[in-house]
């Protein structure tokens, strides 16, 4: 299975009620490696491990099919404070 940036963005938005999603294809085009930033209030009150688990669960099939997946999750409030570091 090969994923596209657009498809991944869409399913993350849908499944994680994300206010903002940034997906970067790190694979050089083969669709096997992605780095994502997810801004969603489903992360409120959750530590890093719990946030990753939420994303891993929501994207279980997709992550299992690709080679590399790196993620950062923020709440809307955290993102407002930190977004300049990521742009």
């Amino acid at each position: 299975m090969s994923l596209t940036v657009g498809y991944l963005e869409q399913i993350i938005k849908d499944r994680l009620e994300a206010a903002l999603v940034q997906v970067q294809d790190m694979s050089g085009g083969c669709g096997q490696a992605f780095a994502v930033i997810i801004v969603s209030d489903v992360f409120k009150g959750k530590n890093k491990l719990m946030r990753h688990r939420i994303v891993n669960k929501a994207l279980e099939q997709e992550i299992a099919a690709i080679h590399a997946f790196t993620q950062k999750g923020f709440t809307v409030e955290e993102w407002e404070k930190q977004k300049n570091d990521y742009q």
């Binding site: 890093k48 491990l49 990753h52 790196t70 993620q71 950062k72």
Partner: peptide, 12 residues
């Protein structure tokens, strides 16, 4: 105890 993967270790 499970700590996490590369992303988590890096941010920690």
């Amino acid at each position: 105890e499970f700590v996490g993967g590369c992303d988590i270790v890096m941010s920690m």
